[in-house]
Design a protein around this nucleic acid. Structure first.
Lengths: 168, 168
DNA sequence: TCGTTAATTGAGACAGAGTCTCAGTATCTC
DNA sequence: GAGATACTGAGACTCTGTCTCAATTAACGA
């Protein structure tokens, strides 16, 4: 997979600039993240690696994710749950999320008009923005067809989440 | 304070509809939330009550907040930290947040154009929205004047947070 | 290729936010 | 006022995430 090799190179370059090292663990994680996952949780990554019998500790997972975020290759986002989700950044295009509170599905969108408007608001408030994060919670088309009706606005606080894997 | 009495009534009405009871603890929490705080954390509330020598357990705090969220009187929001913040809903006007990553300050804004655009996006994606949550992270005017420069976009992940109170 | 040095790793302790259980207590309704 | 039922507090527990420290490994130069 040439595409993944490129990501690994990109990461290595970043590491070198910081005087840091590319290890087997870091390589394996970049490979995993950029090959299959899109939105994922740290714990999920830990589980996947265990499944593949690649031994990587929780501490290393979190440390590597932090580096990937710093390098700009991975983004840390809130999707309405009480912990972080991560997503890899391939096209570099900023985007936001529609999160279905019924099935937990996530749809991305990028809307230049919305971005522009957000910048105008910042300007008006003399605020220097660096990052923004918009989640719209609701019910996706296919869940709605299945008869799911949305909760009253402002009361939706939980989204459907996958069953937890065992920790150890 | 007639205004707070009204909020308590509102909550009681909600509780009655659900076959639930208004207790001293719940009343005290509504009073606290609607009298002084605006954005607050569960733990902060716990601490304030302790300070006032009103004995309320953590479990009750969380249980009551959940009810208040269900009733629509309180909203649960992410402000860029890894745990929830709450805010009471008085005017019922939806708003979003500018969060300063330097001082931790929060500025609210409500922008009809932005809301409209968000709805249009949902329509296009056949998504039925119920709630949305937009945080713009960056540096506020007064911090910028003090010479704080923003981090590179997409790499800002932490915001300044107040020192933690002791748990117990 | 080898040795040195400094970064990295894993195990497990720790911390913070939030949930759950259960026995004792308070509220609401009649 | 009594009974039924919901509520509370204490503390155990879970989950996410961080930290420490001894042992390991990558990277660089000779």
């Amino acid at each position: 997979m040439p595409h993944i090799a490129r990501e690994i190179d990109r990461f290595q370059e970043f590491l070198k600039l910081q005087g840091l090292k590319l290890t087997n663990e870091r390589t394996a994680l970049v490979r995993e993240i950029f090959s299959t996952h899109y939105h994922f949780e740290a714990d999920e990554l830990l589980f996947k690696m265990k499944e593949k019998s690649v031994k990587i500790s929780r501490a290393t997972i979190y440390r590597t994710l932090e580096l990937l975020v710093k390098s700009g290759m991975v983004r840390r986002v809130h999707l309405g749950e009480d912990h972080y989700h991560y997503e890899h950044v391939s096209g570099n295009a900023h985007h936001d999320h529609l999160v279905c509170t019924t099935c937990g599905g996530v749809v991305e969108f990028n809307d230049p008009d919305l971005e522009t408007r957000a910048l105008q608001i910042c300007e008006k408030k003399k605020f220097t923005p660096t990052f923004h994060n918009l989640q719209i919670l609701g019910v996706c088309d296919s869940c709605r067809r299945k008869g799911q009706t949305p909760e009253a606005p402002d009361r939706v606080q939980m989204i459907a989440s996958r069953p937890k894997q065992l920790r150890k």
